[in-house]
Design a binder for these strands. Structure first.
Length: 869
RNA sequence: GCGGGCGUGGCGGAAUGGUAGACGCGGCAGACUCAAAAUCUGUUGUCCGUAAGGACGUGGAGGUUCAAGUCCUCUCGCCCGCACCA
């Protein structure tokens, strides 16, 4: 039995595609374009099969759209800056650049072996000065436009590593690598003013109709719009135990944000964030308060800590005046649960109608004043127990608001605040500006200079790019740019006095926020040309992991708007279509002593149980996302060596719907391999000798051949529809059905029927074309075997003839009282009366009717006849 | 707590309200073989029945409908995202 020799064919076709520059594209005005993009990878090392699922999907779409005649841009590049390179440099005594370049070379070779149709002439790497120099120019433009600025912000500081840590790098309040307790520090950091576009970013989500609903919701929640009011509470009397804040005797009122201005009459306290400037000020004269604030700042910000931390507060001794009633006073507290970063860093507490406020009030024995009455409740009887009442109702105990429903009361209270000059209705957002400073080496240098006299001075454009020095040491903790003996010392471009470079580098999300634009004109002297961007953008189909649902995708949306404001392009949304693919999973294995084992270290013993190389039993764990740490990975090279790229590709596409997780199994890949060989045999040794290409079909076909032809056109129609809708697994099922139909064509029909060879040729050619986007090498090889002209990759996508695809005969289900009792065969579109009488004449039906006339008969054309006995 | 998703054979999964289980994996039986691998053929939701046939069946309970995996109400379980957001 001959086997498909993928080793020979795959490298051969890859060479031919490369030599003919098949996938290198140029903008062609007037020709419809299709920009297919998969999220560019971080070059972390070798790829495993889990890494290439989204590239396989992207390649399918790229080749499919290409066959449909689109000018398809399908580029690939490297998100090449980042922390792992520095960690590797420390661990392996290499240089981040060397390590990164090696990984890029390895991974590029692996992607090439998969036969992906990339335009490699557009390859970019974020760590290349050719790339990040443009990024520095963008930063300076943002700076000039007020979209980049320097601010003090609280950060996680690792005192051992001497660096800022991202939230993800803080584990249980400690630095993930040093184990040191992380401190909160107020540092001057560069930030991007994403909040300048908050409302736009939120509103435009509604127009992203080819994005997953889930991702749109996540972005909406992340932006977190809340309608409410800012309210001013005057402080009664002078500040105790502290000098007055400013001016002569008059103390600034406390401004709070609330969404429940309707419940202001239920206020029983105000609470300030520990980092509120009034709290900080008061702490100067109040050692108890100072100690409380210090303790709050020591508590980590990790979610686990927040969840378990109880609500605690510290009295300030201040009293605030109720905005609606000058005679009413409420105490001012500092509370650990009030965030400085949201709203105004101060709240008013209404325990009756907010669960968190209620817990606080119970703990500190503050009054609980209900002001919203549930529908039908008795105002005399209604009281708050352990749960705050947060539903709708009617206001009471609230003077001029009494009797109003909640929504109405919000409006009236807001108007009153505005009339009194004690507040205004406003909108608060969860979204905060994006801090982009990192105290890291392997990133894009921020192109500014700090001068003692001139302050912050941008690096002059003609001096860009500011390149990273290569001679750096990772022996000392902290930022190597800061330790470098010479790099940071420069003359101030303005006064020419001695000055220092900024040693922070940009967050790597900055790099990935515009790479899709660079791909449009990757060799341009500017970041990207307006012409190229206006032809290729937006990305028609973007594919990536859902883990980027908020950060990368939101930053890129922001960047596109920021670049538009700076005159770079005329576009709001970068990604017209988005698809988030599921993960590739694999069973996990552990040894008796608990170490993770690679799948190839596990063998099946004679008795059928799983053992390791030394014959010791293996503990089988749950199936989880492939990850190096759990060793449940299957190397890409090993799979391509054993089964070839096409087999791997088809498996990644066929076994699960693309948005769901896929389990990688040995039996699964072997099943695909069998199918690959069946396909190859069909094309290379067809059951009857084929006529030359283009041989016309006979006018009339025998029923079996007619059926085959119909199956082919049905498959073409179904596969096309499935690919349009990203139902790859179903498309493959359809192709397999068609394959079965070809193989099952009865032998006598083949041998004796003069029409058979031509019908078979049509079927096999269609098969090769349909397989092209999924298994491009095999499809080319089939095309060659069939004697097709040119490359399959240049063939147009087949078009189904609806007339040929329509079944001549239909099977009609016969139901009695909703249960299937029989089926009937009829020519398509037989009129209802004939079907009804045929159904009523069936013995299976007569038995259930028991001699009575049916009460009702419903005939659905070509589908079902439903009889009610 | 808030938001979202998903529950269908042994497994992955198909089903514009119209024959539930397409397609595949695995299993079982058989052919070829000295044997194995490979390949091929048949079969494969559960239960009753020799069979014809029948009953049951899409997490659970109701409902709408001639007809429900699909629509509605309630409920259970799992997964994901956000989370002291005022």
């Amino acid at each position: 039995m001959s086997r498909y020799n993928f080793r020979e064919t795959e490298t051969r076709w890859q060479r031919i595609w490369r030599e003919r520059r098949l996938f290198e594209v140029a903008a062609e005005a007037g020709r419809p374009k299709y920009y297919m993009l998969e999220m560019f990878p971080y070059p972390s090392g070798k790829l495993h099969v889990g890494h290439v699922r989204n590239y396989t999907m992207g390649d399918l779409v790229a080749r499919y759209r290409r066959a449909q005649g689109f000018n398809v841009l399908h580029p690939m590049g490297w998100d090449a800056f980042g922390l792992p390179a520095e960690n590797a440099a420390i661990a392996e005594h290499t240089h981040p650049a060397v390590w990164t370049r090696q990984n890029i070379a390895t991974m590029r070779a692996q992607l090439e072996r998969m036969g992906f149709a990339y335009d490699w002439s557009r390859e970019i790497a974020a760590c290349d000065p050719e790339y990040y120099g443009h990024e520095q120019k963008m930063f300076l433009d943002f700076l000039a436009a007020g979209l980049a600025y320097r601010r003090e912000s609280w950060v996680n500081w690792d005192p051992v590593e001497n660096t800022v840590l991202a939230n993800e790098q803080v584990v249980d309040g400690r630095g993930w690598r040093s184990g040191a307790i992380v401190e909160k520090r107020l540092l001057a950091q560069w930030a991007l003013r994403i909040t300048a576009f908050t409302e736009e970013l939120l509103e435009a989500i509604g127009g992203l109709d080819r994005w997953p609903e889930r991702v749109r919701l996540m972005q909406e929640n992340w932006i977190g719009r809340s309608e409410g009011a800012r309210v001013l509470f005057e402080i009664a009397g002078p500040l105790p135990n502290a000098p007055p804040l400013a001016g002569e005797g008059r103390v600034e009122p406390i401004e709070i944000f609330t969404t429940r201005q309707d419940t202001l009459y239920g206020a029983s306290f105000l609470a300030l964030s520990p980092n509120h400037k009034l709290a900080q000020h008061l702490a100067e004269g109040d050692s108890g308060l100072a100690a409380f604030i210090a303790e709050c700042n020591r508590m980590g910000t990790s979610e686990a800590v927040i969840e378990t931390a109880e609500k605690r507060g510290c009295m300030t001794g201040l009293e605030a005046v109720h905005p609606f009633d000058p005679n009413r006073r409420v105490p001012v507290w500092v509370a650990n649960f009030v965030l400085m970063e949201y709203g105004t860093g101060a709240i008013f507490g209404c325990p009756a109608h907010d669960q968190r406020d209620l817990e606080f009030a119970r703990k500190y024995r503050l009054p609980v004043i209900p002001v919203v009455l549930p529908p039908g409740a008795d105002p005399q009887q209604f009281a708050i127990g352990d749960e705050a009442y947060v539903e709708d109702g009617t206001l009471f105990n609230s003077a001029f608001l009494d009797g109003l429903p909640v929504a109405e009361a919000k409006r009236v209270a807001g108007e009153r605040l505005e009339a009194l000059g004690r507040g205004e209705r406003t909108i608060a957002y969860r979204l905060r500006d994006w801090g982009v400073s990192r105290q890291r080496y392997w990133g894009c240098p921020i192109p500014v200079i700090h001068c003692a006299d001139c302050g912050i001075v941008p690096v002059p454009e003609h001096e860009l790019p500011v390149t990273l020095p290569m001679d750096v040491s990772f022996d000392v903790p902290g930022n190597p740019l800061d330790h470098h003996p010479t790099w940071k010392h420069v003359d101030c471009p303005r006064c020419h006095g001695p000055a220092q470079r900024e040693t922070d580098t940009l967050d790597t999300f900055f790099d990935s926020s515009w790479y899709f634009l660079r791909f449009c004109s990757p060799h341009a002297a500017v970041a990207f040309t307006r012409e190229a961007a206006s032809y290729w953008m937006p990305v028609d189909q973007y594919i990536g992991g859902v883990e980027h649902a908020v950060l990368h995708l939101l930053y890129s949306r922001f960047f596109t708007r920021a670049l538009k404001r700076c005159g770079y392009l005329d576009l709001d949304e970068p990604f017209a279509g988005l698809f988030t693919q599921g993960m590739v999973c694999h069973q996990t294995y552990r040894s008796q002593t608990g170490e993770w084992l690679f799948p190839e270290e596990v063998e099946t013993a004679a008795a059928g149980e799983l053992v390791d190389g030394a014959g010791r039993p293996v503990i089988v764990g749950r199936t989880e996302k492939m990850s190096k740490s759990k060793k449940n990975v299957v190397g890409l090279d090993a799979i391509v060596d054993t089964y070839g790229a096409d087999t791997a590709r088809l498996y990644l596409l066929s076994d699960s719907p693309p948005e769901r997780d896929l389990e990688w199994t040995e039996t699964g890949i072997e099943g695909i391999w069998r199918y690959v060989n069946r396909l190859w045999r069909l094309a290379s040794e067809p059951p009857v000798p084929l006529p030359p290409p283009g041989t016309p079909l006979p006018a009339a076909l025998s029923p079996p051949l007619g059926a085959l032809r119909r199956a082919v056109h049905q498959a073409i129609a179904a596969v096309t529809d499935d690919l349009d809708k990203f139902r790859f697994n179903r498309a493959i099922a359809r192709i397999r059905e068609m394959t079965n139909a070809i193989e099952e064509l009865p032998e006598p029909a083949l041998r004796s029927d003069p029409g058979a060879p031509a019908v078979l040729r049509e079927a096999l050619e269609a098969l090769a074309r349909l397989l092209g986007p999924m298994m491009p090498h095999l499809a080319e090889e089939m095309w060659l075997s069939l004697g097709g002209a040119g490359l399959l990759a240049d063939q147009p996508w087949p078009v189904a003839d609806p007339a040929l695809a329509r079944d001549a005969q239909v099977t009609i289900a016969v139901q009695v009282n909703g249960k299937l009792r029989a089926t009937l065969e009829f020519p398509r579109d037989t009129e209802s009366g004939a079907i009804e009488s045929a159904a009523l004449g069936l013995p299976q039906v007569a038995r259930w009717l028991d001699g009575r006339a049916p009460r009702k008969v419903i005939v659905v054309p070509n589908r079902v006849v439903s009889i009610v006995a």
